[in-house]
Write a protein that binds this DNA or RNA. Sequence first.
DNA 1: TATTGTTATACTCTATAACTATA
DNA 2: TATAGTTATAGAGTATAACAATA
Lengths: 151, 151
Amino acid sequence: MPTTSPSTTASRSQAIDLASDLRVTVLRLSRRMKSEAGPGDLSETQYCVLAGLNRHGPSTPRALADREGVQPPTMTRTIAALESAGLVTRSAHPTDGRQVHIELTEKGAAEIEETRRRRNAWIDHRLRSLSAEERATLAEAVAILRQVADG
Amino acid sequence: MPTTSPSTTASRSQAIDLASDLRVTVLRLSRRMKSEAGPGDLSETQYCVLAGLNRHGPSTPRALADREGVQPPTMTRTIAALESAGLVTRSAHPTDGRQVHIELTEKGAAEIEETRRRRNAWIDHRLRSLSAEERATLAEAVAILRQVADG
DNA sequence: TATTGTTATACTCTATAACTATA
DNA sequence: TATAGTTATAGAGTATAACAATA
């Protein structure tokens, strides 16, 4: 019998493998999120950088790269795109000539709100169809996953 | 005052925007997962396709593309990579000459187990550092998120 | 005519390596 | 010598458009 028997391992994996389920689900969600983007929309990473600046205040390329978990050249490109769109400003760091001061502009802050309305529409819609308890579970899980991703 | 006031919107976004937090967290997690891959490892999508075949049994390129939320050409490439690695077989569909029958090989099933051990090591480690309650919350959240991604 | 699958092509995101400037 | 940032280059993943084969 050269063929395998999927059902044998299937029940096992469903029962125990939280890590595997998490991987599959996170990947599908991230693809789905990206595919919901329109032509002129911010990319996922661009949005995350703006949201981080909004939440934590001005920063530097290095700190932003560390926060998002990308390498410095990637952040350079992301910042360049945001700057050319007028959503952030690059200026000299007050004390360290090597560093660059990245700050959200008013247009950038407005873009965050606009993006949240437009771009989160589909996921908002999905979330609204859940029960309050399910949303509470998700909110807890997001906090836990944030630690997992950063740790 | 040309500068914005991040703290004003920050408290608001922390309080209400589950959708935004979910987007940011999912993106960081997916980047982190990808970055944990070694040189010869399966890509995230390749792993997800194998896991789907293991869980649900043989399928077709179209059905796999729909399940993963990618376009057919993307699935063609993914399957080609898996086939050339000997992890799946492509054969004629028994009744419909247009379709292709995709089946997991024994080597593919073994690769799933191997990948879960090696590749999930870092996330398993993180999950083990959580409390049982936190893991239970995550397990519930994964089930909910699966619906969100598919819906 | 509609559907399945593939090929051709291009774009985005990300990474590593090499370079410049400042500490 | 070490760190921050950039530039140059390359690879992986994905998409759209066009095509072939079958229903």
